[in-house]
């Protein structure tokens, strides 16, 4: 694949996108998971699909949209949906999880309508749902890098505040942190990351890339910084490994990337089990 990587520019774009997303998704995902918001990633990815398909639909009739990267409108819709999710969560204070199926249904409904109205789509539906190596364009790379930069800046600047907010929201408020503003900023970044991750893993698998590496890291880490570092290591391993395998096997990268992430989680759990059995044996021998 290395020779092909040097020969084909689309492969280089896919590789850069995979490396950047493999870093960014688990970075923001660490906060998403500990805040118990994992399913929000699913809702936002479905709404992003609606934005992308709306852009493609408009592209058939409006010249401006035919030249525009559909991911731009998808990203914008994802950000608006993140704010909408918060609004819904406030409307259903006692059933906040309802906001997710509501938003997800709206996203899928709109996507189905726009896709069916846009006969002769230039983009294959499976590309939108499961990602594609050839789908990453130079303008996608620009957007992915910009989102990664925004994510890193927000996490570096607000790391302490976001950690406090995630661990104990009430205490964070009492200590004077602007919790609402921080939460909005966090949701904004989550929406951006989910939207741009779609190019590689597709709508249906974005949330896996956000959550699975973190789920594996959570099994053995004690501190939050450790969790972030290990989640990124697993994320990179899954995305780069998945991309290489997808290219060699000629299958959608999303599926392979996610399956690799699942395998990592399974391996971590296996090591954990072996470790606890060994510990028991040592204790038994000591007795």
């Amino acid at each position: 694949m290395i020779a092909d990587l040097l020969t084909y520019s689309f492969l280089r774009y896919a590789f850069v996108a995979a490396v950047v997303i493999g870093f960014t998704a688990p970075l923001i995902g660490s906060f998403v998971v500990v805040r118990r918001m994992s399913l929000i990633a699913d809702a936002l990815s479905h709404v992003t699909l609606a934005g992308i398909s709306f852009s493609l639909f408009l592209g058939q009739y409006v010249l401006f949209f035919s030249d525009l990267n559909p991911l731009y409108l998808g990203t914008l819709v994802s950000v608006l949906a993140a704010l909408g999710l918060d609004w819904l969560r406030n409307k259903y204070v006692h059933f906040q999880e309802l906001s997710i199926p509501i938003m997800m249904s709206a996203g899928m409904g709109l996507s189905a309508i726009f896709i069916s109205l846009s006969r002769g789509f230039s983009v294959d539906l499976s590309t939108l749902l499961f990602g594609s190596i050839s789908a990453v364009s130079p303008s996608d790379i620009g957007l992915i890098l910009a989102v990664a930069l925004i994510t890193v800046i927000v996490i570096v600047v607000f790391y302490k505040q976001l950690l406090f907010l995630s661990f104990d929201e009430e205490q964070a408020k009492v200590s004077g942190l602007p919790s609402t503003l921080l939460h909005m900023l966090f949701m904004f970044v989550v929406a951006l990351v989910i939207a741009v991750s779609m190019r590689i893993v597709g709508t249906l698998l974005v949330s896996s890339l956000i959550t699975l590496p973190v789920a594996a890291a959570l099994r053995f880490t004690n501190s939050f910084k450790q969790t972030i570092v290990w989640a990124i290591v697993f994320g990179e391993f899954a995305t780069i490994g998945g991309l290489v395998l997808a290219y060699e096997l000629d299958v959608a990268p999303g599926g392979v990337i996610v399956l690799l992430a699942v395998l990592i989680l399974a391996a971590v759990m296996l090591f954990e089990k072996i470790g606890s059995l060994r510990k028991k044996e040592v204790l038994h021998e000591t007795d």
Partner: peptide, 30 residues
């Protein structure tokens, strides 16, 4: 708070990190 002890016990955070949070309110950005 009375809810302090009912936090998410799986949260990956050390004792030192928890106590450090008490200082975060007075620390500025960066």
């Amino acid at each position: 708070s009375q809810k302090a002890a009912s936090f998410n016990s799986g949260f990956p955070v050390t004792v030192e990190e928890v106590v450090a949070m008490g200082r975060y309110g007075r620390l500025g950005l960066f």
